[in-house]
């Protein structure tokens, strides 16, 4: 169940941003991605999640083992909290949203429409979606945006529970989540103009 990334190069908008990224993520581990804005954290996460093809290198993971969560939560404003979660549970073929609701303290809001949630509550619902996917590897892009301290605590607890069940997580974040984590600074892998990372625009220059 481990995720192995080898010599990965990825591009954003046709321009290589990262090259020769190598890391392995074993069950029960958290890897935190650090780096300034525009360093390529989101691009790396999207490549790992399989949303974009790598320029070079490989991402080895069990098929359909990665759950991705980004800035947008994928919530429908006219559906209730429970309906939103049930939909994703259905799509991912799992059942039971109660544990996810409890973990992110959403029980009181189950029948509230998503359009009437605050930004932090929406975020909690978006993170609760991770629990209903039943996937072992989480790829998270700034999961704690707009969360207050208590909610960050809830997320940290959910993350610990996920790790205890043999899950792992790849997280781009700047704050301390209260779990033991290795740190990967993506600036080390910044694509250099000379190497080009196998990008095609090389052939033009």
């Amino acid at each position: 169940m481990s995720l192995v990334v080898e010599n990965l190069s990825c591009a954003r908008g046709g321009i290589p941003v990262l090259e020769r990224v190598c890391f392995a993520l074993n069950p029960g581990e958290v890897l935190v991605l650090r780096g300034p804005n525009g360093a390529g954290k989101t691009t790396l996460l999207r490549t790992v999640a399989g949303l974009q093809p790598p320029l070079a290198g490989t991402v080895e993971a069990e098929p359909e083992s990665v759950a991705y969560a980004a800035h947008a939560d994928g919530l429908k404003a006219t559906l209730t909290v429970a309906e939103n979660l049930e939909f994703w549970a259905g799509i991912f073929g799992t059942s039971g949203i109660d544990a996810a609701l409890t973990a992110f303290d959403l029980e009181a809001l189950v029948d509230r429409h998503a359009q009437n949630l605050s930004a932090g509550q929406k975020r909690r619902l978006g993170l609760a979606r991770l629990l209903v996917t039943g996937r072992p590897v989480w790829a998270l892009d700034e999961p704690t945006v707009s969360l207050d301290v208590a909610s960050v605590g809830l997320f940290g607890a959910a993350l610990k529970g996920h790790l205890a069940q043999g899950g792992s997580a790849l997280i781009a974040t700047h704050i301390d989540l209260g779990v033991e984590a290795r740190v990967l600074d993506v600036t080390e892998f910044r694509a250099t103009p000379e190497a080009g990372g196998g990008a095609f625009d090389e052939a033009f220059a």
Partner: peptide, 16 residues
């Protein structure tokens, strides 16, 4: 609509 709110990203990584 699904593109804007991120659902399409999530559907693309879903098992269907």
């Amino acid at each position: 609509l699904d593109y804007e709110d991120g659902s399409l990203d999530l559907l693309a990584t879903a098992p269907i």
